[in-house]
Amino acid sequence: MFAYQIVTDEVQATIYFEGDIDIDAGDVLEDEIEPAVAPYTNIILNLEKVFFVDSSGIGLIIRLVQVLQELGRNVYIEQTQPEVMEVFELLQLDEILGKEIFR
């Protein structure tokens, strides 16, 4: 189960993820979320309601963040659950995406 909600103001878009970010989230992330948030300067990925991830899902997040960063956007990941953060740390996501992205 994967759902999301995007809250925007003039410069900022916050994506509230809900459910598991896994292999099944791929199409939604690429086809819906990416074009929807790309115009905003600051993009925040809120993972408060994400309790499980798999490696494909993490790959998708990396891809999304890197695409947005290449467009010159400021991307942040916030309110990550500690269990999910543990997985991120084991995979050294901070090294791939930059430490400042997590807040």
Binding site: D20, D22, I23, F51, F52, V53, D54, S55, S56, G57, I58, G59, I62, Q81, E83, V84, E86, V87, L90, L91, L93, I96
Partner: peptide
């Protein structure tokens, strides 16, 4: 790790994980 799912391994093996690593 508690939050790590291995649902994609049947389909792709360790490839998605290796991609990240």
């Amino acid at each position: 790790a508690a939050a790590f799912k291995i649902t994609d391994i049947d389909q792709h093996g360790l490839a998605p994980l290796l991609d990240v690593l």
